[in-house]
Design a protein around this nucleic acid. Structure first.
Lengths: 240, 240
DNA sequence: ACACTTTTGTCAACACCATTGACTTCGGCG
DNA sequence: CGCCGAAGTCAATGGTGTTGACAAAAGTGT
């Protein structure tokens, strides 16, 4: 049944497709992103998306089999957006940093989509491009493919998992967040100093740690080690 | 309200508490873990938990204000289990490694519970103990509190997020997993070598990366950098 | 031009979810 | 013994994703 008709294959809607085309996957995805920006993550609902697009909620099922597929579509749009105006430089470390930071930025801009998508692999164009860039940068650093693969996996799993956690955190509703974030420093500061001396000593500095700075520090630590190994590798090759 | 009565404070149920005590928070949490292990994460429902414990679902509200509080209790139970037979050694790096590996082991043993709990901060006994140990190890390494706090946050967020991703991956249903995991190496191996030369070169080595080895490498990279900074710090202190 | 097929949106309904309030039952304390 | 608060039950509410039967619209084949 699918693939019948006389239309040229590859065109937008081949031969015999009818219906009022007021709704497209693209428009739906755009609507989801706009809706998520305006209202919170709790607005990511078929009913509210439908209402936002002026359409019956179940009409979305004509374009996406279920909610998971819709989420993946939104996620893939985000990945593509992260690479939109990206140009790798000659510095492999700057290239890696730039790309990972871009990924984080785009994920955190739409946390609920990130939460559901970081654990999924799309294997589409945007993802392939990211992988190629990462592996290329590691090759520039001087690593042979079998070693570059290991660092690549560390870096990609690092950024995906980290963003997943941050995004999950942003997705918590108000009650849970106020219970969490605010109380961190407050409750830790109130810890009995005799039972938890190190916590008591460290508590005053806890609010100084920002999410952004925390991510950047972790990334810096990882890249420091990788760079160190690269220089050692180069030195060994030199010596031989 | 709380703390009234004539009973000895600290006893199980103080003075004037009545009712048939067939249900305790401990029993509920145990039931949740057992239920999550037997059936999937989709079993984490007041209705199904109640049915599993042979009790009305709404009875749980007598012990936990809402579902979120129940999740926190489960999360803290996992943390406590990770610390059960833990004894820090004199080597700060070995201590950190041991504890983080323990956390991962416990989380991956209960992936469904891990997914729900890694993004939450419990601020309860087990978590406090973990934090104290971590900060203590970093203090042993020679870091002042304001710097130890930063590395502590990196390490805890690293292990939580990483385990969250691994656990989320383990909990994917069959359809999504077969779509994901198998195709990784397979589809990347089939990538056109002219468009993705680095992927083509690295593809043969991709199956060599195990989840366990990947985690250990990431942890090693982080600790390498931290240790390096510790030695530099010690050298600077020596020179002065 | 007309019937036909396929798509697209609508409507009503189902099953499940967390959560609430009123009600019953129980147990220890005064 | 009577009381009062705690523990458990029951029914109901408003929300969710998802499904199936139906109606209208747009292109195609003849």
């Amino acid at each position: 049944m699918a693939g019948t008709g006389t239309g040229v294959p590859g065109t937008r809607r081949r031969g015999g497709a009818g219906g009022r085309v007021g709704l497209t996957p693209e428009r739906i995805v755009d609507g989801c992103l706009a809706l998520l920006d305006e209202q919170g993550p709790e607005a990511f609902t078929f009913r509210r998306i439908g209402g936002y697009l002026g359409v019956d909620p179940t009409a979305l099922y004509r374009h996406f089999r279920d909610k998971d597929e819709l989420v993946l579509a939104v996620a893939d749009r985000l990945l593509a957006r992260a690479l939109e105006d990206f140009t790798p430089t000659g510095d492999w470390r700057a290239t890696l940093t730039d790309m990972l930071v871009r990924n984080r930025t785009v994920y955190l801009a739409h946390p609920e989509a990130a939460v559901l998508s970081v654990s999924r692999t799309t294997r589409r164009a945007a993802e392939m491009a990211s992988v190629e860039i990462t592996l290329g940068a590691l090759a520039d650093a001087g690593f042979p493919p079998e070693e570059a693969v290991r660092y690549y996996r560390v870096l990609v799993d690092f950024v995906l998992s980290w963003c997943g956690l941050e995004a999950a955190y942003l997705t918590l509703d108000q009650a849970a967040r106020s219970g969490d974030e605010g109380a961190w420093s407050r409750e830790y500061a109130g810890a009995p100093a005799d039972r938890y001396p190190h916590i008591a000593a460290a508590a005053p500095y806890l609010p100084d740690v920002t999410e952004e700075g925390n991510f950047m520090l972790a990334l810096e630590l990882l890249l420091d080690s990788i760079e160190l190994r690269a220089t050692k590798l180069a030195a060994a090759a030199q010596a031989k």
